[in-house]
């Protein structure tokens, strides 16, 4: 005999977020680097940024660091929002 049961996940609190549209071109775009300070994150992110800039004419205008285990400070996120159009971030161990 079949039975009905509750599902365990509950609901999600936040409204669904939309991804920002990708820029049509990186030419002239201002890039920010958000380094999570994991080993070699700075090397990886800077190398990727340099390659992007060389290929497209984009510019790195801001670099910030954050602790990998904590969220970036509002001040950093606000600054990024004001000053750059694309942020490069993320690196694990």
């Amino acid at each position: 005999m079949s039975i009905r049961i509750h599902t365990p996940e509950g609901t999600i609190d936040r409204p669904a977020t939309q991804r920002a549209p990708a820029p049509a071109t990186l030419e002239g775009v201002r890039i920010g680097i958000l380094d999570n300070t994991k080993p070699n994150a700075d090397v990886l992110l800077r190398s990727a940024a340099d390659a992007l800039c060389a290929a497209t004419g984009a510019q790195v205008v801001r670099t910030d660091t954050k602790n990998a285990a904590l969220a970036a400070k509002d001040q950093v996120l606000d600054g990024m929002t004001r000053e750059v159009q694309v942020v490069l971030t993320g690196s694990a161990d």
Partner: peptide
């Protein structure tokens, strides 16, 4: 990280499980 809403029903479901 899911921003899951832990209401009493959802907690109780997991307690039963």
């Amino acid at each position: 990280p899911r921003d899951g809403r832990a209401d009493r029903r959802a907690i109780a479901v997991n307690a039963v499980l």
